[in-house]
Design a protein around this nucleic acid. Structure first.
Lengths: 243, 243
DNA sequence: CGGGGTCATTTTGTATACAATAATGAGATA
DNA sequence: TATCTCATTATTGTATACAAAATGACCCCG
């Protein structure tokens, strides 16, 4: 674990009251999303416990939760690590998300209340503004909020839950495989177009918009199998940062 | 928890060696599927621990795992219970499964090896035979095996994992909402038809076959909202069996 | 210089003790 | 008789101790 993140967490802890396993999971998940904890990072139970001021029991539950979300790799008798999905899994995650999110927005088209539509627009605008001023963390945050809102609003809650999971997994692999040159994966206007179709009640157009959006996002990644960055890393045992 | 199940488990434990949280989760999951543990059944940690001869630590992990699979309801400071999905959730689960399993079989059409195709046919035949001789538990087992095989063979492993989850959840609600008069939810020949389309490489026909199969299955359930069996049960605090 | 094995260290797995919270039931009161 | 209160009990939440396993370093030997 990185020392910067370490101290940041401890500071936050002092302020608040007790921390639950959910709190820990939230913080770790967020750190992974923000690339503060790169894939392969070890997450020893005692260390995490010290960071958050709780015992291993609570940490273990948090790690188990994160493992069920595919954020962390938890194998028997081994320290948990931030997961590093393969290139193949990345493609499959995108395919799955296209299927599920496409269906969700198709179901959602024309059914959104004015309030939620406004909330979605706010996130889209904030995202675009964050992009313009070069604030990538904020940009990611707002993009995530937008898709998370869509998942929450899904008339089909089961599909909504699956979508929440897929949005998380997609974000992780985007952070992992983003072309090194690229500063951001922002695609101008795509969210706005989706929102228009949703407001107009055009189910199939909404589905297409999401498909295009996700295909575009995937195409911004470096998924060339030759390099096999991850495999090399794990094979060579190069662990980004230890506790 | 029922006493019959209780003793059965203890007997099994004596035979085998140590039990892991995964073992416990497997056994409980299976019992739920087989309706040995009806929805709402309390699952106190100490009791389960005694049954399986382990301490609460292991039981807790097993319960957490089952909760992430939506088999069990685990709320803070309350005893875990076998989940009782609502009628609404039942419909949504079926809808989600149609989407996902439809896509999986479409991807799978024409890509199955002769061996797996044979394995699938074996399960279909065994299911039909179990139905004919009135062995409902065996019938369910083979039907589950068939769909589980499909999920495992999915070229897209992410979709495959989601399908595994949905097959489980569907089975639970089928057990819950099966029309009381019906002895079985077997639909003659539907699995065979699907297998034919898969062998012939007809993706869209396979998708339709699954859709029909699942619509048919759903129509065999008693999903009339007036009765609201579950809600009544939970409101009246009627707990099927205590520990 | 490299391979392999042994031992100390680290880390997880499990059980248990105690604290905190929720469920239960008895008894008093209207 | 119904209901409210409060003590009792049952159950989960958390921390800790010890066992088991993996890790890593070191040394020996080829």
């Amino acid at each position: 674990m990185s020392h910067a993140w370490h101290e940041e967490m401890q500071a936050e802890i002092k302020a608040g009251g007790r921390v639950s396993d959910r709190d820990i999971a939230d913080k770790v998940r967020h750190a992974v999303l923000m690339q503060r904890l790169p894939p392969g990072t070890k997450l020893p139970e005692v260390t995490l416990g010290e960071v958050f001021g709780v015992s291993r029991s609570v940490v273990r539950k948090a790690l188990t939760r994160l493992a069920s979300e595919h954020v962390v790799d938890q194998r028997p008798n081994q320290v948990a690590r931030v997961r590093a999905p393969s290139i193949e899994e990345t493609r499959e995650t995108f395919e799955a998300r296209r299927l599920v999110e496409g269906e969700v927005v198709a179901l959602l088209a024309g059914r959104l209340s004015a309030e939620t539509l406004d909330a979605l627009k706010v996130q889209a605008r904030e995202e675009s503004e964050a992009y313009r001023r070069g604030d990538e963390p904020a940009r990611i945050e707002h993009s995530l909020n937008l898709h998370h809102l869509l998942a929450e609003q899904s008339p089909n809650r089961v599909l909504g839950g699956m979508l929440t999971d897929l949005v998380l997994r997609t974000s992780i692999v985007v952070a992992l495989y983003k072309r090194s040159g690229l500063a951001s994966c922002y695609q101008d206007g795509q969210h706005d177009r989706l929102l228009e179709h949703l407001a107009d009640g055009e189910a199939e157009a909404s589905r297409r918009a999401i498909h295009d959006h996700l295909h575009g996002l995937e195409s911004l990644l470096d998924l060339s199998p030759r390099e096999a960055r991850i495999d090399l890393m794990s094979i060579l045992g190069r662990t980004p940062e230890q506790a």
